[in-house]
Design a protein around this nucleic acid. Structure first.
Lengths: 193, 193
DNA sequence: ATCATTTCTTCACTTAAGTGAACGATTTGA
DNA sequence: TCAAATCGTTCACTTAAGTGAAGAAATGAT
């Protein structure tokens, strides 16, 4: 389990054995059961996550309706907005599968950064990369119709379509479950013809 | 002009006079004429921008059609994707108003970071903040109808509606210019009733 | 194993966005 | 300054998404 994390880190910086030991001593690994709500609307939290195995979901409740805006799976980092601006969260984060993740917080960051400054380099690069990915994602979403978005998802994250319920997927695609049903039927119809 | 930049930086870190001098000696300020295309599809570039005054636009050309996905105005930073992954750009960046900006590149970053490590801290925080803002933005876009998105824009960036042509705005909202016209008429109709 | 709940699909109807065309109004530039 | 291009709006029509309801299928809990 630890190796998954260290393999990931090794893509950015190289750690000495002492540094690895130091990280492990922080006791950052957690297993979380499916159905657990890690963050609630209105709640404050400093926790940031990195997912080793499993799936988290971010959703809003708007007019009593769940609006799913993101799924986080293996090797995804999740820094809730409230951990940055220290304001109550506007959204929920729930655990959709039994999940193994690491939990971090600013205090740990400062401790780690002061011991090994290269972590700050990694965090900067990581967050620049994540930002870039996000922008591409956003652009793709904006420039596509719901049907194209579904087809893109089929290409880029086929696993999601298997592991996540349709109504959450629909919300994630910016449409209603009924529309997703229809759209899938439409695609099937086209592929037949 | 320099003060605008230093005021902005002072929100994150404090600079000595020597550090300010060092920055100015890098000759990073540029003025760019309206209509200039700063980055073309297929082009590689390492340049990153910070806008002091004016407006840049990011757009794709998909099936011969311009798709505007972002506007950048005062105090916005713009790091093109191609500057991060060193691949040809998938989009264009054009200058929509006569604009004053600073230009940076990785070589300068390394030079500055090694002289004053606190810049790395600023960049990390800045990119985390930008990421967080982006996510909120994306979430807002996903969870809204085109009409709500227009009303949100009216609230959050009213200047954009004035300074940018309608058809670019429509594309930015994910719809066609005709639909934006209609939608605006609809809103006007409602506000009368 | 059964019952209750949740999830997915289908249907008929409504609403809104896409499309292609037309028309002034504005802007641009030769 | 005048012609050409661009831009914004409107119209009629098409296509797709939203809505509310109903029922089948899958899931979970006891």
């Amino acid at each position: 389990m630890h190796d998954i994390l260290f393999d990931f880190i090794s893509k950015y910086i190289s750690l000495t054995e002492e540094e690895k030991e130091a990280m492990l001593s922080l006791d950052i690994f957690r297993t979380v059961k499916k159905g657990t709500i890690l963050l609630k609307e209105g709640q404050k939290s400093q926790d940031v996550y990195f997912i080793l195995k499993g799936c988290l979901r971010k959703y809003y409740i708007i007019n009593g309706e769940e609006k799913t805006t993101a799924f986080f799976t293996e090797m995804d980092a999740l820094t809730p907005h409230c951990a940055i601006n220290n304001a109550p969260s506007e959204y929920f984060i729930s655990c959709e599968e039994n999940t193994i993740l690491t939990v971090g917080n600013p205090k740990m960051d400062i401790e780690i950064f002061s011991k090994s400054p290269k972590f700050e380099l990694m965090c900067r690069i990581l967050s620049e990369e994540t930002l870039a990915k996000h922008q591409i994602n956003f652009d793709e979403f904006k420039t596509s119709s719901p049907e194209q978005r579904y087809l893109n998802l089929l290409q880029n994250r086929p696993d999601l379509i298997q592991r996540v319920p349709q109504h959450q997927l629909a919300s994630f695609l910016g449409i209603k479950p009924q529309s997703l049903s229809r759209l899938r039927a439409r695609i099937l119809e086209k592929s037949k013809a």
